[in-house]
Design a binder for these strands. Structure first.
Lengths: 170, 170
DNA sequence: AGCAAATTGGACTGAATTGGTCCTGTATGG
DNA sequence: CCATACAGGACCAATTCAGTCCAATTTGCT
């Protein structure tokens, strides 16, 4: 449905590897060997992360990278932003003035921005900390924000979705 | 952060235009003229929608397109799937066997699937019906599924998000 | 001091995907 | 029977992305 760039995908893997070994300097070569990506590619990722302030680097022999802050304070949205560059996404709304010649289409775009923000909210809620947990089914996202409400609402939406898809695309 | 294809974006606009005039046949030329896209492009979109079963078409003079079912039963996820073709998105997980040489990275990918499903849940909740509402702030997504729980959880997450971003990217 | 290890920054290329167009065929209505 | 409008392709152009490489700089070790 929506595509995330492959680099952003790799980025989360790289960051997760670093997050598992706090306060240690990890070289690009080690990461490359560990997760099976070419070293230049890993280097490119690490450079982007460092530039975005998610990692700190140390040059020279025995140098390497480490997290700039705690894994709880780095979200998946941060990582994607670091790699993608532009903080915006989904639709490009105002960039194409040729559209929206009728006011009817504008309501669509306004609603798209809300959708985009909701998705971003999910991505901002998932922290590097959550990503390295071994058992995915035990994780409850947005646990710090919902408090009193039931955590099952997301799962219910999933069930409704699957029923729906079976009915549509077979 | 994540990019949606431009065609999928246009697709929602086209579908919204049709959804506003129920039970009427609308030609590609009319849509093209109304929303300011080239006719071949609009035609391509309409063909994809029809192929996916979201629209029904009628050939010949005075022909055109109309919704195959009610706007409440067509979701944004349906539209994106119709255009994108493949029902999957975000990461491509199992398709690259070169990765995941360590078990450590696998947990990351498992968690990605959960994130992907959450996002898809949002997209499946927003119906064509919601998209053509003129006032975006009055819409409460996922209203039909949460029932007993508070509808404010999403908004709370948005607030937390914005605070976070101000602190990070300044 | 000097050498090796490792990051930094930038440019560069090859390719894949996408956005967009066009053409031929077919069906419908006047 | 002709004009209109969809169907189903093939097709091209171009943007963007993934990935590589090189020169420079910094640091640690001998």
């Amino acid at each position: 449905m929506l595509r995330m760039s492959k680099l952003a995908d790799y980025g989360t893997v790289v960051m997760s590897y670093i997050a598992k070994q706090p306060e240690r300097l990890i070289s690009a070569g080690e990461i490359s060997h560990a997760i099976g990506l070419e070293q230049p590619t890993v280097s490119k990722l690490l450079k982007l992360m460092t530039h975005a302030g998610l990692l700190v680097s140390r040059r020279g022999a025995m140098g390497g990278y480490s997290l700039s802050r705690s894994p709880q304070s780095i979200s998946v949205a941060d990582i994607i932003d670091a790699i993608e560059g532009a903080p915006m996404g989904l639709t490009e709304c105002g960039s194409t003035p040729g559209l929206c010649t009728r006011e009817s289409t504008c309501s669509v775009r306004a609603n798209w921005q809300r959708i985009s923000q909701s998705i971003r909210g999910i991505l901002a809620d998932v922290k590097l900390n959550d990503l390295i947990l071994p058992e995915p089914q035990a994780i409850s996202w947005r646990k710090h924000i919902e408090g009193t409400t039931s955590p099952d609402s997301m799962n219910e939406s999933m069930e409704a979705l699957h029923e729906h898809r079976n009915q549509v695309t077979g």
